[in-house]
């Protein structure tokens, strides 16, 4: 029996699109592995971690069209849980001497730790999701914001577990650029598969017309919840990848700055498509590196430029405002990459 008996035309198209996007990611990855310097490797790694976050955002925010601002918190939960599980007992004895419930008395294999981190993040997301999926519009956004603040203050307050503002150090650095490449390629396939799946289509329909979708028998809360939990898995993986590469984490990167950065990436690219998520992430990640270079006050064409702290923030804001004003559906709008190619060929 042929494959087409199992998957729809859109899903096949989705496979092609995911393949094209994967090629792009792998090409960038190979370029930096063979020609890049160490700091460039780190930039690409960070960009791909953010790609996981943006894909996770796309799964819920893009398909359900509900602005979510809590994603960095879930990334943080994933990172911290994995870090607590995987860090060797000897190091935890120093860094977390007061930890309750014997958290500093065990250490697990990185894979087991990652699995536990994903499971706990997904479980928490499911619990929160029961509430958040019942709200829509501004209500959902504010609850997600509340969630971000709550999680962040727990990170800061429970210094005995999370070390708060200080660095949580000693996490084994088991990931390298190859690992993140493999993970992000998988993530693209999953995100795209979800978009074209039965649930994804129902969710997108409910975003366009909630009442209409409901009257067609779509269980809006249920499909939203599925997307929300699936998105949280992406975020947990992003957090784990972040922790496993850097070896140290702290609460700061999982707060508003990161939230806005990743939201900007998604809306620039276009939140309705996976292609948009990839494009937005790459453009902003590498664009910001250029701006950061200017920020330090370099010498260009013999002219010494002044130090311009804050330039990257301004650029990010301008990107959001301009995108919203002139093309609020983002660069890709509603078009995935393979549809674009098909249009060119015709």
């Amino acid at each position: 029996m042929s494959l087409s008996a199992y998957i729809s035309r859109d899903q096949r198209s989705g496979l092609v699109g995911s393949l094209l996007l994967s090629c792009l990611l792998i090409a960038v990855g190979l370029l930096v592995v063979y020609f890049g310097q160490r700091y460039q490797l780190r930039i690409v790694y960070a960009a791909y971690v953010n790609l996981l976050v943006v894909l996770g955002l796309q799964v819920f925010m893009g398909n359900a069209n509900i602005t979510n601002l809590s994603h960095s918190a879930f990334m943080g939960i994933g990172a911290y849980v994995a870090a607590i599980c995987v860090t060797p007992v000897k190091i935890k004895a120093i860094s977390l001497p007061q930890a309750p419930w014997g958290l500093n008395a065990f250490a697990l294999d990185p894979w087991v730790s990652a699995f536990i981190a994903i499971a706990i993040t997904a479980l928490l997301a499911w619990l929160v999701g029961l509430i958040i999926t019942r709200l829509s519009g501004i209500g959902a956004t504010i609850v997600s914001l509340a969630l971000l603040v709550i999680v962040h203050s727990i990170f800061l307050h429970r210094t005995d577990i999370f070390k708060g503002k200080q660095a949580f150090f000693g996490i084994p650095q088991v990931f390298d650029i190859n690992s993140i490449l493999i993970i992000s390629v998988c993530a693209i396939f999953v995100a795209r598969a979800f978009r074209e799946s039965h649930w994804g289509i129902q969710l997108r329909a409910s975003a366009d017309d909630e009442v209409g979708a409901r009257s067609m028998g779509v269980n809006v809360y249920r499909v939203r919840l599925i997307a929300w939990v699936l998105g949280s898995v992406f975020l947990a993986v992003a957090g784990i990848s972040y922790a496993y590469f850097l070896g140290t984490i702290s609460a700061r990167p999982f707060y508003f700055t990161h939230v806005f950065l990743t939201v900007a990436m998604l809306i620039l690219g276009g939140m309705r498509t996976v292609t948009g998520a990839v494009l937005g992430t790459l453009l902003i990640s590498f664009g910001l590196e250029g701006v950061r270079y200017l920020e330090t006050g370099p010498e260009l064409l013999g002219i010494k430029l002044p130090e311009l702290l804050g330039l990257s923030g301004i650029m990010l804001g301008v990107v959001i405002v301009v995108t919203m004003a002139f093309r609020s559906s983002g660069i890709t709008g509603n078009t995935e990459i393979e549809q674009l190619f098909n249009r060119w060929r015709r």
Binding site: T141, S312, M324
Partner: peptide, 16 residues
């Protein structure tokens, strides 16, 4: 949501 995100962008620009 378009308005909200624009406002976020404006806020970011002004802060910086």
């Amino acid at each position: 949501s378009t308005g909200l995100l624009t406002a976020f962008g404006v806020s970011m620009i002004l802060q910086n």
